[in-house]
Design a protein around this nucleic acid. Sequence first.
DNA 1: CGTGCACTTGACGCGGCTCAAACATTGTGG
DNA 2: CCACAATGTTTGAGCCGCGTCAAGTGCACG
Lengths: 243, 243
Amino acid sequence: MLIHESPLTRKLSAFVALSGDDLETLARFHQRRRTFQAGHELIHEGGKHQSAFILAEGWACSYKMLPDGERQIVDFQVPGDFLGLRSVLFRATDHSVEAVTRIEASEVLASDIFDGFATAPRLATAILWAASRDEAMVVEHLVSIGRRSADERMAHLLLELGARLMLVGTGDKTGFDCPLTQYHLADALGLSAVHVNRVLRHLREEGLVTFQKGRVDFNDLPGLTRLADFDLDYLDQDGPLLR
Amino acid sequence: MLIHESPLTRKLSAFVALSGDDLETLARFHQRRRTFQAGHELIHEGGKHQSAFILAEGWACSYKMLPDGERQIVDFQVPGDFLGLRSVLFRATDHSVEAVTRIEASEVLASDIFDGFATAPRLATAILWAASRDEAMVVEHLVSIGRRSADERMAHLLLELGARLMLVGTGDKTGFDCPLTQYHLADALGLSAVHVNRVLRHLREEGLVTFQKGRVDFNDLPGLTRLADFDLDYLDQDGPLLR
DNA sequence: CGTGCACTTGACGCGGCTCAAACATTGTGG
DNA sequence: CCACAATGTTTGAGCCGCGTCAAGTGCACG
């Protein structure tokens, strides 16, 4: 049974107890495993009939480009997350996804998913839950960019990533390994890279978080949580990060 | 057959041709019709086990509040849209929904939806499509707030609303009736109400759009579309607004 | 040992916020 | 029918958070 312990399994288990049938169907999703180099664009905005992926190893990000060359990162994906799930139903994909690090991911055809829905209804519910959770995260990012200051936004993002990584087993309340550059953070938070740098310095000087050398350290988790107005209810997971 | 012609039916038909069975199941969703006054909060953030609604008449908005009393509107809902669909699977609702005008909406229980999934698979796909489309709109709002100027954001929002209303039969390429206040626009666009007013004046003086007296008039649709970088592919609907 | 990429810091300007004050419109109760 | 309160719109003055531009540092890699 432990053989099935993929990050996705681990994540979905936070929502429902999966049956043997569910696990089997889930295992079938993990055939067709592929590797991509850092920077590779797996899914291209405007493309048609593309399949989705389940991320097994490494980090990715989904984003949209603007005509002036600016980029808005919509979300980051960590192991256990789907890539491109939303637009399997669309005529044309509405966003792009690229590998932040070297990644390993399993390709999933739309038909796999729909067939799975028929044979493993509990799994179907779990996948819908995962999709709803993804949307809830996007909504929270919207709130951040719309109404929170740069410091608060940054704090919120780092806390969210920490909580998500705990759920799949990487990272704990002291921090996590983070391959993002300050440019990634800027594109995700709607800031300039220059300002991201200043924000990080400020948070470090306040003794709240340290972002350095591919590592995020939570120096004052309660203080950071207060600053960010971070409440992990929207992740709908039992929150060992805070409790 | 025309008896079934609800806004939702009309919207879903832009995605798939619904069978008689589908229409019947859909009709069953429209029992339990209720009326709410403008300003009434149908769904409350943090609440539990709430049902969803299908909006039949009037406008609503979904939003999140921040501790300092600020509000971020995530999206507006017009006839044919679901209210609170995303969090039927969640332990606690992650956002609130309130009526902008007096509205009529049909209450839908989670069980209705899941049972419908089993009996009318094509309808299930159509509902997933609608949910994906809702998410795509949120993503586009994120891009707007993150990377577009105030003028561009406003233009984009008004164009999106116009396109959505065309799909359900209200509004055309000349404009649409719009019950929103400038405060609503401010909360949706991450701006202050004062600045919204200045933006609207500017767009009016440029001869692009007029927002006055509950009516939006597209004075220069191509110009507005260019300004906003508006491409309605993300709505995944055949776009009579632009073609 | 040079070339590129990520990070860092300073100077300066602007878009959008805040505060403040009218004005317009609508609904309400006396 | 009027007074007036409540809500929405409009405009000005001043300021600040964050963007832009510019220059420089550190480090990894070929």
